[in-house]
Amino acid sequence: MSIIATDIPAATGGAGVPAAGPTRGLVEITKVRKSFGAVEVLKGITLTVEPGGVAVIVGPSGSGKSTLLRTINHLEKVDGGFIAIDGTLVGYEVRGSTLHELREKDVLKQRTEIGMVFQNFNLFPHLTALENVTEAPVVAPRSGKPRLSKAQARERGLELLDRVGLKDRAGAYPRQLSGGQQQRVAIARALALEPKILLFDEPTSALDPELVNEVLDVIRGLAKSGTTLIIVTHEMGFARDVADTVVFMDQGQIVEQGSPQDIFSNPREERTRSFFSKVIEPAFNI
């Protein structure tokens, strides 16, 4: 394993947390920039999410929320700035004063510590719910943890499906499940690797309204579990319930961030205020 945790504080400038400590799931995003062609979608984002914290990112479409989320597990490479998990850079290794891009195998190892749940589930349609959950723990290379045997993975998989209320559908294929059930399987699949951090990319946007809550309830349960959650969503009521920190993004920048109380009830910026006036029903906006 080539990632050297102790080298990083100097590189990140330190966010006030000792890197060698037993922290789990500290996310530090520093001046991250990303362009697609001529369009700059992230214009220097800096954000810290404490271990076990729940950060909810809101903002209009095209503001770069999803892209930011995808840079955290290196699905998108950043063009500038860097991201560190518990003091370890994502996607790069520090050697002296140079950054070396990690080989695919090491990137995969890092990703096993960062679960991701997608807007359109991305379940593997040719595998059953249980097979979807057990696939990664058996084959993914993990740092410090052995791969699971098939029997162990199966046991863990059934436990996780039970936790999301789908133990009796373990043998069903994704197309035989409702959208809400599919998303719950996807959450169980992300949990199977026991990640420190879970990323949710608009987890309820593809669901019928009556299915949204069954998914949100599962996420609410996770918020209390001590796993760091970073959630992109349009469900403002849910954001207010579950978030420690609400981050409002617009046009590739963080406009403001703070407690749900601050952001929803007393936004300082005009842009935040005008966005919420469009998305929140009047009864809620008191």
Binding site: N73, L75, E104, K105, L108, K109, R111, T112, I114, G115, M116, F118, N120, N122, L123, F124, E135, A136, V139, A140, P141, R142, R189, A190, L193
Partner: peptide, 21 residues
């Protein structure tokens, strides 16, 4: 669908296994 590959890489599934499985 491209999302299948993304989901598999996000789960840390190695390249060869992503292709074959």
């Amino acid at each position: 669908d491209q999302g299948q590959l993304e989901a598999a890489s996000a789960l840390g599934i190695p390249a060869w296994r992503r292709s074959t499985r």
